[in-house]
Design a protein around this nucleic acid. Structure first.
Length: 301
DNA sequence: AAAAAGTGCAACCGCTGGAGG
DNA sequence: CCCTCCAGCGGTTGCACTTTT
């Protein structure tokens, strides 16, 4: 079978450009897609006058130029979703990305490799091991939930979307996040069809929903924390031990995905300290404090 | 101040599978 | 079926930038 690269080696592809995209190229691609739509990427690349493979154009569009693509650090909510879904699905980045509106599979993959795997290295645990997953649920995710709560209280007077995107983005991210930020601001808003609304929530029994009407399906318990998150509404409880995921794009065909996390097998987790509270009382648990510190490093927001 | 090491992320690569002729 | 084209996925790389020495 001829692969993508082979199919691009024919006529007209002998002077293909590679590497970083220029402002002019971005403008060409955006303008062309605004006028003609995307798809048929090889044809699109030629028609738009881009000396790029269709594959490269597709990647640039989906990962960077497409409207509604979020930039900057992942919010604690997004990190929670990633950790949960990865524990269930593994490296199914695109599948995970479907539950994080505005985030790309590439971004999630990079997050996992640079942050999560780095933490696994610090702990000297295989990031694919059950032990590491347990560590995530035991130590990391509760802390993320705390972050969510803090964010919630801090941003009660303003929308979370705005506050997280602005306050959680480091100077470095601002510098790096876009090659041509001003171009995106000015060009990406024009003549693009609205993206489908996407909602996710985690209910009182820690259930993740992807639906257009999850609020209708679940009463909202009083002790539940909820958070507006762009087009999504996310509900968390505080235990986060069992998560069920309902993909209710078609509500009549509820697709329940059980994300139950085995929380009763912590004996395999070879940490010296048993619980979170003790871990946070540094003097009594140096090792755990180290872990805690390392995780804080990861979450630098 | 400069070099080395580390980090983060955009972009590329190879592969797979579906669609259509 | 077989072949080609294409879209999409996950893994990997290259490099700009930051931090450390």
């Amino acid at each position: 079978m001829k692969n993508w690269t082979d199919s691009c080696k024919g006529e007209g592809f002998d002077q293909l450009k590679r590497g970083a995209w220029t402002l002019e190229e971005d403008n060409l691609l955006i303008h062309y897609i605004n006028c003609h739509g995307d798809g048929r990427w090889n044809l699109l690349a030629k028609s738009a006058g881009l000396k790029r493979t269709g594959k490269s154009c597709r990647l640039r569009w989906l990962n960077y130029l497409k409207p509604d693509t979020k930039r900057g650090n992942l919010t604690p909510q997004e990190q929670l979703v990633i950790l949960e879904l990865h524990s269930k699905w593994g490296n199914r980045w695109s599948k995970i990305a479907q539950h994080l509106p505005g985030r790309t599979d590439n971004e999630i993959k990079n997050y996992w490799r640079t942050r999560v795997q780095k933490q696994a290295r610090h702990l000297k645990i295989d990031s694919n091991s059950k032990r590491f997953v347990e560590a995530l649920h035991r130590f990391w995710m509760p802390r993320l939930l705390e972050k969510v709560e803090q964010t919630s209280s801090l941003s009660s007077s303003s929308s979370l979307t705005n506050s997280t995107d602005s306050t959680l983005t480091t100077k470095t991210d601002q510098n790096k996040s876009s090659t041509h930020p001003q171009t995106e601001q000015t060009l990406l808003t024009s003549s693009c069809p609205p993206q489908p609304s996407h909602k996710e929530c985690i209910n009182s029994s820690s259930t993740v929903f992807a639906s257009n009407s999850c609020e209708k399906m679940l009463p909202q318990p009083p002790d539940q924390m909820s958070q507006l998150y762009g087009d999504s509404t996310i509900f968390y409880n505080s235990s986060f031990q069992n998560i069920n995921c309902y993909n209710t794009t078609n509500i009549n065909e509820l697709d329940m995905i059980d994300l139950a996390i085995g929380s009763d097998d912590m004996s395999t987790l070879n940490f010296q300290l048993a619980d979170n509270d003790r871990m946070r009382n540094g003097p009594n648990g140096d090792m755990a404090a180290d872990i805690y510190w390392n995780m804080d490093e990861l979450w630098k927001l």
